[in-house]
Amino acid sequence: MANIKKTPGINGSSMADVSFILLIFFLMVTTMGTDYGLIRQLPPMQEKPEENPIDINKKNILVVNVNQRDELMVGSDLTDISRLREKTKDFFNINNKGVEYPDKKDTVFANIGNVSINKSALVSLQNDRGTSYKAYIQVQNELAGAVIELRNEFCMQYFGRKIDDCTQDQQDIVSKKIYPMSISEAEPKNVQIK
């Protein structure tokens, strides 16, 4: 004896909620191909290429040179890329006050007090036309990393927190006055190594 039963209809009212959850899930998860990059400002074009009249003292400049074999020279030593960050930090660090370090000048900042900052310390980045882009980015990355680490150390010492957690005023003072990203790029040389 076949008792035929009516299947109850599925309640569809919660389907909307389910689909909204799915929609939100996809909205959160989908990346729109976010790009990350090292942001740099190029120097403006000079109509007349004038010779640099300011003779900057040698100790105020750290020459970083990458040759066409991707070998790195910092100052006058052949260096491995892993030591570049440490060397750059050593050069820029305002606590290094010896004669061999860049000139310092005492400056008074609001809410911070007297800090002796680098007068005109500069990293001069030179590369060859044959340098690979990979090596160039590594060097740029290490230089940027060194400055960011110094900024963070300064902020920890004076404000007790990292630079990203500081107020906008504090960030501006630290990143523009105390530890600016002083990297100068020379036009690449076309040196042939035989």
């Binding site: 790009d35 990350y36 190029l42 120097p43």
Partner: peptide, 11 residues
């Protein structure tokens, strides 16, 4: 005069 550049890299 397009001075603002970004070297796109992987993170």
């Amino acid at each position: 005069g397009a001075l603002k550049i970004s070297y796109i890299t992987t993170k």
